[in-house]
Design a protein around this nucleic acid. Structure first.
Lengths: 213, 213, 213, 213
DNA sequence: GATGAATGAGGTTTCATTCAT
DNA sequence: AATGAATGAAACCTCATTCAT
C-alpha cells in the first residue's frame, strides 16, 4: 500500500533532520524528498519547527509509553534495568533517525516547545533514575554515584543510534542482549541470562514500534 | 593578559557551534560574539567551514597525540584501557564544546574535508580497537563482540561532553576514575584501583590540554 | 498586450548588461528594472550568469540561423557576402543591446559556458570565412589576407551596435545597403546594386527577428 | 632595469581592466598583480576610478597627439587618411589593452570624468571627420554618408585591438598597410601604394609610443 | 489538494577604502 | 614606503512562509 502524503512528509523530515540537522535542512529539501511542492508542504504541517516538535514528541511519547508498560509487570531491579536497556537499544537501533533528531536538535527549538520536550525527556530519564535507585537500595546494584552511572548508561545506549546498522552482522536481539549484559556489569550485578525483563521488553517493543527482531 | 582577536574568534566559534550547531550559527552571531564586524571575521578565517574544519582538526589531533603518548609507556591492557578512558573523559569534560562540535557537526562538512576529519577519527578509534583486541587476546577482557563493546565504551565516554559540568559536585579526576571503573567492568576485568594507566593519562592530559584536575 | 514577468526580466537584463556591463549590473538593478523583488528574480532565472548565458545563446542562435537560411538560396559570392553583411548590420542595428552583450561580456563567463558561447561564435565566423574564401577562389574578391579582411569586415559591421540609433536620420535598410557597398569595396568587388543577396537577407531578417525596415 | 612600483600598478590595472573589465577587477586582483598589498595600492593611486581615468586619459592624449603631429605635415586627403588609419591601427595593435579599456569602460566612469574622456574621444573623432570631409570636398573620396563611413572606418580599425596578436604571422606594418588599403577602398579612392601618409605615421608612432614595427 | 508566484529577511562572502603602526 | 587590521556597504543568493488561483 502506498504511503500517504502526510507520511511521506514525516519520513522525509525525519530522514533529513537526522542526516543534515534541522538548520541544515531547507523547506525545499523537504519538499523534494516528499515529492510535493514546497507550498504544498504547508497543508501537512504548521511551521518547520512544528514539524520538528511533532517528530520529537511522538518519539519521546512512545519511549515513555514503552518504558512504563514494560516496568508495569517487572519488579526485580535487574530485570527492570534489563528491560529499560533492551527497549532503549531496540528503539534507537530500529529508529535511529527519529532518536537522533530527539537527541541532537533540542537546541533548535524555541523556548516554549523546548521546555515541553525537555520535560518529556526528563520524565523518561526519571524512570531510569528510579530503577537504578531501587537497585542500589536493594543492594543489587553497586553505583557509588548513581547519577553518573545513569548518564553513562543512557549515553552508551543512545549511542547505538549513531552507529548500528540493520544490515550489519549483528541481529537486533543479540545487540540488545549484549547491551543489557554490559549495563548489568556496569552496575556490578551478575548477568542474569534469560531474566524476563528483556523478554517483557521485546513484547512491548513489538507493540509500540512493531519491531520484530 | 587579553585575548588575541584570533583567539576570540576561535572561542566564539567553538561555543556557538557547540550550542547551536554549525548551520544554526550565523556569521553575524560569530562576529558579535567575537566583538568584531562580520567583515573582519574574514581576516581570521577562510570560510565558515574552514573555521569548523580547523576546530575539528585541532581537537582530534590533540586527542590522537594524547592517546599515543599515554600508550607509549603503558603495556598492560587494563592499564591501557584505563588510560584511554581517563584521557577521553577528561578531554570531553574539560572541553565539552570542542568535542561536541567534533561529534555533531561532521555532517556539516563538505566532502573533501569530511574525508580528512573522518580519517582522523578512524585513526583514533583504531587505537581503542587495538587496545581492546590485545586485552581480549591476553584473556584479560571478556568481550564477545569486541566492536560492539568498543562502540559502547566510546559512546559512553563521549557522552560526558553532553552533561558534565565542572560546576557540579563531581571533580574531574573522580569522574574519570569512575568511568575507568565502569569501562573495566564492561570488559569483565577486575577493577584495578591505582593502576598506573590512569596516572599516566593524567600526566598526558596536563601536557596536552593543560588540564589540572 | 502586457509583458510577461519573464520577458520583463529578460529585457531588463539585456538593457542593463549592455549599458553597464555584467559586473556593473547588480541583482537589485535587475530587480528594480523588472519591477519585482530581487528574491523573485530567482523564479525566472538560475544565477545571474545563467541569465547572461541565455541571452547570449539566443542571440547567437538566431544569428546563426539567419545566416544559414539566407545562404541557403544564394550562390554568387558577392551576393552571399551582401546577405551576410546585411543580416549582421540589421541584427546589430535592431538589437544593439543583445549584440553588445554578446560582444563585450564573453570575458564575464566562467569556463564551461564560455566554451559553449565561443563555439557558437566560431561557427558563425566560419560562415563568413567560407563565403570570403569562395569569393577569392572564384576570383571575385581581392583579399590578400582573407582572415584580416574577414575580421575587419566583422568588426566594422559589429560596430554598428555601438553607435546606430533608429531615431537617427538613416533608415535601417539604407544603412544596411551602405554597409554592403562598403564591404564589397573592401573586397575589390564592383558594387552590384540590387543583387538579390540583400533582398534575401531582408526576408530572413523579417522572419528571424521580425524586423521590418 | 626593473619596473617602478607605480609602473607595475599601472600595467596590472591596464591588463586586468582589459581582461576582466573595470567592475570585474577587484582591488585585491590589482594588488596581487602588482605584487603589493591592497593598502599599499593607495600610495600610488587615488581611487580605483582615478586609476581608470588616468589610463584612459593618457591613452587618448597620445592618440590625439599622434594624430595631430602626423597631419601637421600631410596635405593630401588620401595621405591624411592613410596616416590616421595607420596610426590608429598601430596604436590598437601595439597597445590592445589600453585601447580596449578606453573603448569598453567609458560606461564605468561617473559623470564628470566621463564627460572629460568623451570630450577627448570626440576631439579625436573630429579629426577623422575633418579628414574625410576634406577628401569628399576635394572629390577624392566617395562617401554618400560621410558620418556612416567615418564610424565604419573607426570601428573597423578599433576592432584590431580585439583580435590582433603580435605573435601571429602578420607583422605590424603589413597589417597597417592592409588596413590603409581597405580604408581607401571604402572611400572609393585608388590605393596609393607608398603614399607618404603612412610613412609619416610610422615616424610619429615611433616617437609617441616607441613602436618599432 | 496542489502549486506557481511572490517576498522580506537574512544567509555568507567580497567590496573599496581608511588608518594606526 | 608599506601593511595588517578593520569596517560599512553591498555583492549574490537562499530562507521560510503566504496567497491567489
Amino acid at each position: 500500500m502506498a504511503l500517504t502524503t502526510e507520511q511521506r512528509v514525516r519520513r522525509a523530515a525525519v530522514k533529513l533532520f537526522a542526516a543534515k540537522g534541522f538548520h541544515g535542512t531547507g523547506i525545499r529539501d523537504l519538499a523534494q524528498a516528499a515529492k510535493i511542492s514546497s507550498a504544498s508542504l504547508y497543508h501537512y504541517m504548521g511551521t518547520k519547527e512544528d514539524l520538528l516538535v511533532d517528530i520529537m514528541r511522538e518519539c519521546l511519547d512512545r519511549l515513555l509509553l514503552a518504558a512504563r508498560r514494560a516496568l508495569d509487570t517487572v519488579d526485580d531491579p535487574a530485570d527492570a534495568l534489563s528491560a529499560l536497556v533492551t527497549l532503549h537499544v531496540m528503539a534507537h537501533a530500529a529508529q535511529p533517525d527519529e532518536t537522533r533528531v530527539v537527541d541532537n536538535e533540542v537546541s533548535a527549538l524555541s523556548r516554549a516547545p523546548r521546555r515541553r520536550i525537555v520535560a518529556l525527556r526528563d520524565q523518561y530519564e526519571a524512570i531510569w533514575a528510579d530503577t537504578i535507585d531501587k537497585g542500589v537500595s536493594a543492594g543489587v546494584f553497586d553505583a557509588p554515584e548513581p547519577a553518573v552511572t545513569r548518564l553513562a548508561l543512557l549515553e552508551m545506549c543512545t549511542g547505538v543510534a549513531r552507529w548500528y546498522s540493520p544490515r550489519g552482522p549483528l541481529p537486533l536481539d543479540r545487540l540488545a542482549a549484549r547491551y543489557a549484559q554490559l549495563a548489568l556489569r556496569m552496575l556490578g550485578s551478575p548477568a542474569l541470562l534469560g531474566g524476563d525483563g528483556a523478554e517483557r521488553a521485546r513484547e512491548v517493543a513489538a507493540e509500540v514500534w512493531r519491531i520484530r527482531p
